[in-house]
Design a protein around this nucleic acid. Sequence first.
DNA 1: GCTTGTTACTTTATCGCTACCATTGCCCGA
DNA 2: TCGGGCAATGGTAGCGATAAAGTAACAAGC
Lengths: 355, 355
Amino acid sequence: MQSLKLTAWHNTVMAVRMKDIARDLGVSVVTVSKVLRNHSDISPATRERVLKRMKELNYRPNLAARALVTGRTNMIGLIVPDLVHPFFAEVAKGLSKVLRKKGYGLVISSSEEDPELEQQEIDQLLARRVDALIIASAQWTVESFRRIEEMKTPYVLIDRRFAGLAANFVGVDDEQVGAVATEHLIEIGCQRIAHIRGPELSTALGRLEGYRRTLTRHGLAMPPGYIVLGKSADDAADASGYQAMRQLLRLNPRPDGVFCYNDPIGMGALKAILEAGLRVPEDIAVIGCGNVHYAGLLRVPLSSIDQESATIGERAAKLALSLIESKDTVRPKTILLAPKLAVRDSTRKVACAAK
Amino acid sequence: MQSLKLTAWHNTVMAVRMKDIARDLGVSVVTVSKVLRNHSDISPATRERVLKRMKELNYRPNLAARALVTGRTNMIGLIVPDLVHPFFAEVAKGLSKVLRKKGYGLVISSSEEDPELEQQEIDQLLARRVDALIIASAQWTVESFRRIEEMKTPYVLIDRRFAGLAANFVGVDDEQVGAVATEHLIEIGCQRIAHIRGPELSTALGRLEGYRRTLTRHGLAMPPGYIVLGKSADDAADASGYQAMRQLLRLNPRPDGVFCYNDPIGMGALKAILEAGLRVPEDIAVIGCGNVHYAGLLRVPLSSIDQESATIGERAAKLALSLIESKDTVRPKTILLAPKLAVRDSTRKVACAAK
DNA sequence: GCTTGTTACTTTATCGCTACCATTGCCCGA
DNA sequence: TCGGGCAATGGTAGCGATAAAGTAACAAGC
């Protein structure tokens, strides 16, 4: 007979346990456990009986208990600055696809682009003993990562990197993003190319650098004021792109091409240009980055640089899984994906198309 | 002295445990545990000592262990058909915002709109012993929900409901969505209003019903062929909206207003109309649903019905938390939010604005 | 002086599961 | 006949934490 003492726990839930199956079948819990985990030293007959009973009782192993003894939770934590941003949503989807197959669960937190909140979320996930962390970080310092290392939890950074931090990284080559975009604008005949840059993150800095280098390589000028900051990269990114573009429109000479840090900014820029009575791309060509789903449906379909968000998710997942498998710490790995150009009307000059 | 036997577990990880703190301070583990949980029967002096040592050692409670004994994981599972869909992403954000404050974690799974996959994900989350489930279901039957009930795990459905299932629900009133949209089109003078409907889900059916009733109430005709199915509600929704609209354009008389199941479909419809050389809204007014972020930046800014996605998330989270708190099963609650009209150019007729 | 209560702890008994050996037959070769 | 090797199963001891109940020390009340 089971213990007669009923704890609070017993009153509320009463899930099926291995013990119940073992008792019903007159075998030991260990045998049941072995069947569950496909151990080889169980006779087919017993295995069948156990499986049958499991199905009958709709048994589900208590993963929390398993985690306690194995030290592995089969969960991976993901922290992103903004779930609503299509880029991160796609990354999450790519991740989830790979992890599901391997039986891993995905715990997602949003840091709302707030370093302090992100720190808290990291702590939460570490307390939950996730097997690995995947982070698109909003931090300014590398301190949080040290704390993760202390726990010996493997982690993979995505999208945003940190100088001086030897960590696993998966992302697009941002300098190349800037280069490809700028190169494209030059190719279609733009001479005065402006850039609406993003915040102080590796992504924005990399794209800026790629833009600069490409202009220099082609001997093109970068007049003062041609680099404007798009203030927010989040919800209000389109508004900030709009503002930034209006600023650019006041310049003399006016730019004839704009490379925008991301698509929302690009959309805002488009709006400002059209509102000013100018034509895209004839007067000003615009290119964004991120290749969001709706880029093609805009007033003027927006050319963009594709960051392969889903691939980033998949690669990050695979990398994380390999880190979990490998017993000892391996040298951090950096996976840089090549950006792809997606040409649409906003950079499709008729004159050029005919060339 | 600790056990000399080193298990595999000990070799790999070595996180700080209560035991370590207790040993260092010469108190019992329980005392440490009580400090952690702010029990009152601990002297300020001891409390301080424990807290100090916790900080020094960077102690983090093992939530898996806690879960095992308390029977509560402090995790809530969310299953959505598609994480990339802005609606669900916003719901997730709203959820996460509320849950974070209460110290709950969010485990997110995507069912990819596949009922079987969804079933697997539900099983996974139940095995993880999440305290509650929040589901935007892609199921056709209610069987999965019975299985959740068997485990006595509280669950909340969002967005999509099921006839004949007494379950907690949070979502927008879809019939009202259809009514508001149709009413608006009538108000701006449309006479022949078509509808590009969605798949066989409560959302699409509700909106369709609202559309029908409103037309009937106003004594307007619903010529055959005026209701077209937008085949996919996912990735290719815009393409399917485009196709559906082309079909509508072939009709005689041609509709002068279209209510679309969602915004992506609306965007596709817009494209088809403009491509046919017609004007929006002068020739045909278009309204969508979902009020996605980019709706205002389209070729013709798209009017839409706002579903208050973030609010749905927040309400669902609060409902789930209250279900967890309440010991005994309560009567399922249905929370219906009122849709809001967001008027943009696609339904802003000059003639009408002057009226 | 002895009960009664309070404060501040500690002891004990799990939670559900797995790791790590035992153990029990049974067959086989020497 | 016996040791040894397999095949199949079981016993025991935790994992890190909490719940419930116990205990020592001291104060208060009559």
